[in-house]
């Protein structure tokens, strides 16, 4: 009765990759996976830990189903679960991704006590006054003076950057790294056209805007052109 295989196991230097057929039923898949795992058990007995990742093609798995697969793997002593890679995204996931990619532009002044938030990048045409706060999932670009708090990469993006025409923040946060401003900005300290990013030492660095093109080439979204 059995014809083609629904579960193909491939060994790579990063561990095992299980290619799961995306046409058969989930139940068949599960059954075959279980069989294969018991079959191969002996072979791996004395091996060190091996990472198992899934490639599930055009199949959509619910969170419960994913968890079921992970449990099957975990039951084997020397196997650990890697990621589950699918070609399929739900609408909500896509919307979230698009939002995170999006640049939201806002023309206003963020005043003391106010908070302005964006899921993706934030382009503020105006100032952030002391006591005001701007927060973004992505990068923050302030076309005016940044004198309050800016928090970029709030969901954990360590590559996020903050730039401002006048960089005199009271505090800067990128992902979970925080830096506080010097206690006073001297009057002749213009702090014009600067950017903030997490440097190689894991600390927030402030530098000329122009360093970003080298440090964060992925800020370029323009395709083609010269």
């Amino acid at each position: 009765m059995k014809k083609t295989q629904n579960v193909l196991i491939k060994g790579t230097k990063d561990g095992l990759i299980l290619h799961l057929d995306d046409q058969c039923s989930y139940e068949d898949l599960k059954k075959e996976l279980l069989d294969k795992l018991t079959e191969n058990q002996r072979v791996h007995k004395d091996y060190p830990l091996i990472t198992v990742s899934f490639k599930i093609g055009n199949r959509y798995l619910t969170d419960e189903q994913k968890e079921e697969l992970r449990t099957l793997i975990r039951q084997e002593k020397n196997l650990v679960v890697g990621n589950i890679d699918s070609n399929v995204l739900t609408k909500t996931e896509v919307e979230k991704m698009m939002k995170e990619e999006e640049i939201v532009s806002v023309a206003r002044i963020v005043r003391s006590g106010q908070v302005l938030e964006a899921t993706g990048d934030l382009l503020l045409i105006g100032d952030v006054n002391p006591g005001g706060k701007v927060v973004a999932g992505g990068n923050i670009y302030v076309m005016g003076a940044l004198r309050g708090i800016a928090h970029a990469g709030v969901y954990g993006n360590q590559d996020a950057v903050i730039s401002a025409s006048v960089m005199k923040p009271s505090q800067i946060r990128i992902s979970d790294v925080i830096t506080r401003a010097p206690d006073v900005f001297l009057d002749d300290d213009k702090r014009e056209m600067e950017c903030a990013y997490i440097g190689e030492n894991g600390q927030i660095m402030i530098d000329r805007l122009q360093v970003l093109m080298h440090l964060r080439p992925n800020l370029n979204r323009l395709e083609g052109g010269h």
Partner: peptide, 12 residues
Amino acid sequence: VRDADRIIGLLE
């Protein structure tokens, strides 16, 4: 000035 800024934000 800080409090004025706060109030202006509310007035806006």
